[in-house]
Amino acid sequence: MTTDIDTEELETQLQECVAKGTKSVVRARHAVNAPMLDLWADALGDPNPVYREAAAAEATGRPGIIAPPTMVQAWTMPQLSALAGTLPQVPGYAPYLGGRSADEVAAEKAASDTGDNPAAAVHRLLTAHGYSARAATRCRQVYHREAQVGDHLSCESVLTTVSERKNTAIGTGYFVTTRMTFRDQDGADVATVDWTVLCFRTPEAPSVPSAPETPETPEAPEAPDSVTGGGDADRDGTGGGSETAATAATGRTCLPRKEVPAVGDALPTTVIPITPTFVIATAFATQDFYAAHHDADWTRESLRRPGIFTNILATTGLVGGVVTDWGGPATRLLEVDLKLLAPNHTGDTLTFNGEVTEIGGEGGDDTGERDEVLVKVAGWNSLGPHVLATVRAHVPA
């Protein structure tokens, strides 16, 4: 355990990394493509046809198939070899060192680097001081335009803040926030993402997983009495879109709206069984290879958790999907802002409810678009609230 002097020196170094303001840019390996869209939609059970069918997308005024906006981070997630090279000491990525020791990978990286990435430097510092476990806690995505098949995205990242040391329910650590700006092949902004990760020390003794302390985020609605019920996400029972095993299991549909949205409208309850297949499939579909999302033995031993759990990228996709399921294929997401609380472990069930709280832009007056809505979304499991979120979207009737 570090001393107070160690902590003071560490926090000085962390803030020096923030002060550098150095930006790094990563270009996606592949352009936005239909096979990856299919994998993402299949894994999450998202029935929205605009992610799969050109005719359905064109019927909503789009030029063709679009990528789910909530999927934006998946395109530039690190390759396994890059993860091993950038964060070799972080538990959970060790299986992908390819037989080389962490020291060998670090030395190889140091020899080839032309400049340090402050965000990576922060993670290395924290890991070296014992804050080696990771948990994503907050994600705010703002969408400037919808990515389409054929777009080739890049991501510019800059470290924005590192908190003081915090005591949380899952361990003591630091909240590290990075701003990511996603652009297309022409340099036009596609999305801006503020991403917060808790770097913490795993408690010595096993403990019941609960909610970490997270940065302040807009309030979300309390779950209605029906939160433990099955709900019915199908407005008229006719189904729609491309059905997968996941959509069949949850009853999710995405149909054109017939009613004008109004303040107080409740979204249909959506129930997601958290099976091992769901956790692993959604992690891989979002290109997240952290061991806590696929290796139950490692997760129990290293994180003191009862088993694997869903990642924040899957939760973001589900939150956006709850709104597009309700709003229909013509819905255009503008922003998803969420914080994570209790984890989603296998064997549990995640239940979503939501409510329209504003119409017509910020403040609900006539200064905003009349089809812009603000929706509060809450997802609950047996441990309590898993996610609290606000979603802005255009929902034409």
Score class of each variant (00 low, 15 high):
Arg305Asn: 14
Pro88Leu: 04
Asn381Asp: 01
Thr217Pro: 03
His394Asp: 08
Glu259Thr: 13
Gly241Cys: 12
Ser132Asn: 14
Arg183Lys: 12
Thr310Ser: 11
Thr244Leu: 11
Thr160Phe: 08
Arg392Gln: 01
Glu243Phe: 05
Asp4Met: 05
Ala28Glu: 13
His123Trp: 05
Gly45Asn: 09
Asn33Trp: 01
Pro35Arg: 09
Val122Thr: 10
Leu333His: 00
Ser112Glu: 07
Gly45Lys: 07
Asp6Ser: 04
Thr70His: 14
Val193Asn: 11
Gly354Thr: 10
Glu369Ser: 14
Thr238Pro: 03
Val279Arg: 12
Ser163Asp: 00
Gly130Cys: 04
Asp4Cys: 01
Gly241Thr: 08
Ala266Thr: 07
His294Leu: 04
Ile170Lys: 02
Arg392Ala: 00
Pro209Cys: 10
Arg305Met: 15
Ile312Gln: 09
Ser157Leu: 14
Thr277Gln: 05
Gln185Lys: 03
Pro69Leu: 02
Ile359Phe: 05
Arg183Met: 07
His293Val: 05
Asp113His: 04
Asp151Lys: 06
Glu9Phe: 01
Val271Leu: 08
Glu219Gly: 11
Ala378Pro: 01
His123Lys: 06
Thr349Asp: 00
Leu126Cys: 00
Lys20His: 03
Leu83Gln: 15
Glu164Ala: 14
Gly173Ile: 01
Arg257Met: 06
Thr269Leu: 15
Phe289Cys: 13
Asn344Trp: 03
Ala188Leu: 06
Val197Leu: 09
Ala169Pro: 04
Ala120Ile: 01
Leu303Asn: 13
Ile280Asn: 12
Phe278Lys: 15
Glu8Leu: 06
Gly307Arg: 13
Met77Gln: 14
Gly61Met: 12
Phe352Ile: 07
Thr7Met: 02
Ala220Arg: 08
Asp4Glu: 10
Leu338Cys: 09
Gly379Trp: 02
Arg370His: 04
Gly187Asn: 08
Ala169Lys: 10
Ala106Gly: 01
Gly92Ala: 10
Val271Met: 13
Gly21Phe: 05
Met180Tyr: 08
Glu204Phe: 00
Thr349Phe: 00
Gly229Asn: 10
Ala266Gly: 03
Glu53Cys: 11
Ala43Gln: 12
Ala74Trp: 07
Gly85Ser: 12
Arg100Asn: 02
Pro118Lys: 08
Ala43Lys: 06
Gly231Leu: 03
Ser154Val: 11
Val25Glu: 12
Gly187His: 14
Ala248Trp: 04
Met1Val: 03
Ala19Trp: 04
Pro49Leu: 02
Asp189Phe: 00
Glu53Pro: 00
Thr178Arg: 10
Gln148Asp: 01
Gly231Ala: 01
Leu334Thr: 08
Val142Ile: 15
Glu222Met: 08
Asp295Arg: 12
Arg62Trp: 05
Ser242Asp: 07
Arg257Trp: 04
Gln79Leu: 14
Arg257Asp: 06
Pro306Ile: 11
Asp38Met: 09
Ala111Lys: 12
His30Glu: 12
Arg201Lys: 12
Ala74Gln: 15
Tyr51Val: 00
Arg332Tyr: 12
Pro396His: 07
Gln15His: 03
Thr60Arg: 06
Ile280Ala: 15
Ala188Val: 10
Val373Gln: 07
Gly251Ser: 04
Asp6Trp: 06
His123Cys: 06
Arg134Gly: 06
His293Phe: 04
Leu341Tyr: 14
Val227Asn: 00
Ala330His: 05
Tyr143Asn: 08
Thr196Val: 00
